[in-house]
């Protein structure tokens, strides 16, 4: 499915002016979906693209997805609420996902959370006031050999120490 963008995590804050799926793109996606035998099979990719465009899967974005796939909105919502990486609430421009599974726990992930919470001034699940970052836990990133690990957007960081956090935040802030 090469027509659909592969970049998921570089979230934009919701904005009514720009950043929505363009009419052209919607037309393109509609044609693509119409060529499929089973349009529902494209829903995850469509939700991801809509999320990318709107910053999160807002009601409006969910409606667009439903329209493109020609399914009831409730079907989109049913699916969206199953997946932990489809956001039905606004998130920051970048999401910081800190692995809180067992190998990272052994290697001190709790200290990473503490540092991040202190530096960002937010709790887990919250977004910074400037909309730059949302802090979320995530299960094992398949990077246990470099635990503790986290993702910022799509970028993986491993062998982390609390001291490295400041520099990473500096670099990743957009």
């Amino acid at each position: 499915m090469s027509i659909i963008a592969n970049n998921i995590f570089s979230q934009r804050m919701p904005s009514k002016q720009g950043n929505m799926l363009s009419d052209n793109r919607i037309k393109e996606l509609r044609e693509y979906v119409a060529s499929l035998e089973r349009p529902e099979e494209a829903l995850v990719d469509l939700m991801r693209e809509a999320q990318e465009a709107y910053g999160y899967l807002s009601d409006e974005a969910a409606e667009k997805v439903a329209e493109i796939a020609q399914v009831p909105v409730i079907k989109v919502d049913e699916l969206a609420t199953f997946y932990s990486l489809i956001f039905r609430r606004p998130v920051g421009r970048k999401v910081i996902f800190v692995c809180d599974s067992i190998s990272c726990w052994v290697m001190g992930m709790e200290n990473l959370f503490e540092r991040l919470k202190a530096r960002l001034g937010i709790d887990i699940g919250e977004t910074t006031a400037d909309g730059a970052f949302t802090l979320l836990p995530i299960c094992c990133l398949g990077a246990c050999h470099v635990a503790p690990a986290m993702l910022v957007g799509e970028k993986l960081y491993g062998n982390l120490t609390p001291e490295m956090i400041d520099e990473i935040l500096e670099k990743e802030r957009v």
Partner: peptide, 25 residues
């Protein structure tokens, strides 16, 4: 083709995975 999922451990259970590929929960 490659199907990129959207997060949930249970998707790895084989019949759940088939539902996921079909666009279901």
């Amino acid at each position: 083709s490659v199907h990129r999922s959207a997060g949930r451990y249970e998707c790895g259970e084989e019949t759940a995975l088939m539902n996921a590929l079909e666009g279901k929960r």
